[in-house]
Design a protein around this nucleic acid. Structure first.
Lengths: 236, 236
DNA sequence: CGGACGCTTGATAAAGTTCAAAGAGAGTGG
DNA sequence: CCACTCTCTTTGAACTTTATCAAGCGTCCG
């Protein structure tokens, strides 16, 4: 207990060590808590934490893919977002998690105690502003997705999804895009049915915009055509 | 300039005056900046600030109703949220506004300089945690709306909209719910067309769940039936 | 290798959109 | 103060998109 307090005081005086840390963002700060960190492994389909659970930890995805889901009373499901290596979860959940996190593929996660993290932030302006930026970015992502769900057609949604996955995931090699999630996950993310997602992909394939060697791999053959369908001429 | 610095230092030492302020949340803290505040009036349809504008101010709605809109490249529009008296806008927009804010009805707004506000926050833990809570709440609101757009039918969306407006706006007197926004606004908020919104309202009216004396007034005749349609048996 | 699960495609049905036109309300100018 | 007009709302009918239902296929895992 004493050693914890000492450690935190030492860690919290900011701006001395931050030069080597700032470009890493929040992850860099979390690095300072590595002695408290717990490394976890999950299999496909495992639940990391469910909506309503006490948010005792901040999670950093090391490798793999997570889905953040919201379950309705009657079984309907929405996937708010997918997380990949480097992404964080739980920053905005002060008390209880608002969403459930489930492993889409075998996933390695590092859990940092929230209490320690919060204390770290108390003495660290840079960290706090990075947390603020992270939350702002989450809001903006959510708003972009609101627009997608509110205004775009099935075809546009699927195309937009592909472009966003290319921007976001590190699973792009050239034009090869790895999609660890299943069609049902994509459908629940885009507010469509599995069948409609399949048909939209099939249509893009028929137009030679993409190739689909297998269900978890898309090769983008005509990126600008894809962007055009997505309605995002320049990445915003 | 000097007086500004002095004032801010005096104001920033927190926890002395905060007892009478905490229950008011962020608005209470903004009150301390009243000497820098500007009061603005807008007519129906006026733009308070457009997406992309420099976010130089935090806005507090005093009276009236705003819509926060996202405009696509091709004219499609989504309304992310409606704001009423007591609501704030701009807290999450560090640099430029992500959305446009437009007056739905004649509206009075107080603008506080962001720079002063940020400085206020630097020395005030309570304010910062309230800002954090505000951003978290924004994210949760957005996620609930994502679920609405992704999973609910037109009928359910309209019912949910009505229940949320009853919870949110102060424009509820008994079962009378004032809807300052037009049908097109509601449609753009719910990802539907005007006609579909009208038909859903007409259906609820035909089932005696609501009455619609005029386009901007809904009387909820059977609140539990409305909640049932909304799929929110208990308010979550 | 077998079986189960997820993916894909087809046919049909339903929900919502689009197009069209009439009706109601609010604000304006005579 | 009334009539007019413009805009918004409402309802109807046809059409489009997407969901639903159903069946076959492929693949991955055990």
């Amino acid at each position: 207990m004493t050693s914890t307090a000492v450690r935190l005081r030492a860690v919290a005086d900011d701006d001395l060590v931050s030069a080597d840390v700032q470009h890493l963002g929040i992850s860099g700060h979390l690095e300072r808590l590595k002695d408290y960190a717990v490394r976890l492994r999950f299999h496909r389909g495992d639940t990391i934490a469910a909506a309503g659970d006490a948010a005792a930890h901040i999670y950093a995805v090391s490798a793999g893919c997570l889905r953040l889901t919201h379950h309705g009373n009657d079984g309907r499901r929405h996937i708010a977002d997918f997380l990949f290596g480097g992404d964080l979860w739980g920053l905005g959940d002060a008390d209880n998690f608002a969403l459930s996190a489930e492993a889409v593929s075998p996933t390695t996660i590092t859990a940092y105690p929230r209490q320690q993290f919060d204390r770290l932030g108390e003495g660290n302006n840079r960290l706090r502003s990075e947390i603020f930026a992270h939350l702002s970015a989450s809001i903006q992502r959510a708003h972009r997705h609101l627009y997608l769900l509110s205004c775009l057609s099935a075809r546009e949604r699927v195309a937009t999804f592909l472009t966003r996955m290319m921007q976001k995931s590190q699973l792009v090699y050239g034009a090869r895009l790895d999609l660890p999630m299943g069609r049902q996950d994509i459908a629940d993310h885009l507010g469509l049915t599995v069948e409609t997602v399949c048909r939209a992909l099939a249509a893009l394939k028929a137009e030679s915009v993409i190739e689909v060697p297998n269900a978890h791999l898309v090769v983008v053959r005509d990126g600008s055509a894809l962007s055009a369908v997505a309605g995002e001429p320049s990445l915003s």
